[in-house]
């Protein structure tokens, strides 16, 4: 799998490159700022991009804009955004096009190599991966939402869904049968008013539902 990285901190980009190389990824290019990133994506047409939120010259939220722009120009290019802190606003902006293939993780998670690599594969495969921190923010800060009507178990399932896990993996994680997970997810969809169209997109929209209810 070919990856383009946008990260200005040499320490981190070198670390990422090393880590990805041990797991069979091919790092096509490491871009130091948003402009170089756009050019690198254009040149290499990678399968996945990893983008830091803060990039030169101003170190604000250039990475978010660069990621959204790259997805717009390159057919929803799968992008995983890494951030120093959790901000649900950023997650919302990344998810806004509703096309999947998006991840938003705290930089800390990179150290959990296996989980991080899993997340990369999920995003590259069109899934959605949200940092547990974002999910926590959403669940604790929205008690008056329709989300309130979810049972704790359903909330847990939704949280894991937002992290990008599939039904089987969720079942494994909370130690229930896959069938039970299926039922929980059905309840979540129903309570959030999501019509049974394409299930894959409904998963994304369930996460989006949190972010829309502002």
């Amino acid at each position: 799998m070919r990856v383009v990285i946008a990260e200005d901190n040499v320490l981190l980009s070198a670390g990422l490159e090393l880590l990805l190389a041990t797991r069979g990824f091919e790092v096509a290019e490491i871009a130091g700022d948003a402009e170089a990133f756009a050019a690198a994506v254009e040149r290499h047409r990678p399968d996945l991009a990893i983008v830091d939120v803060r990039l030169p010259p101003d170190f604000r939220d250039e990475g978010i804009h660069a990621a959204i722009e790259a997805r717009r120009r390159h057919d929803a290019l799968p992008v995983l955004v890494l951030s120093q802190y959790v901000e649900q606003d950023y997650a919302g902006e990344l998810l806004a096009d509703g096309r999947g293939g998006v991840g938003y993780l705290l930089k800390d998670r990179v150290g959990r190599v296996s989980e991080f690599v899993d997340a990369l594969h999920r995003v590259a495969g069109g899934g959605t991966v949200m940092d547990p921190g974002v999910v926590r923010q959403l669940l604790t800060r929205r008690p008056r939402d329709p989300l309130e009507s979810l049972t704790p178990r359903e909330q847990e399932v939704l949280a894991l869904m937002a992290e990008g896990l599939g039904n089987g993996e969720i079942a494994e994680r909370i130690v229930v049968t896959e069938n039970a997970v299926h039922k929980h997810i059905g309840n979540v969809f129903a309570k959030l008013g999501l019509a049974p169209t394409d299930t894959g997109h409904r998963r994304v929209r369930a996460v989006l539902a949190y972010l829309d209810r502002r």
Partner: peptide, 20 residues
């Protein structure tokens, strides 16, 4: 953020690779 925190992330990354 860009100094100390980034350094910690890098250490965590190396530890993660070493652990494996």
């Amino acid at each position: 953020h860009d100094g100390t925190q980034a350094r910690l992330v890098s250490i965590a990354m190396q530890l993660g690779v070493a652990e494996e």
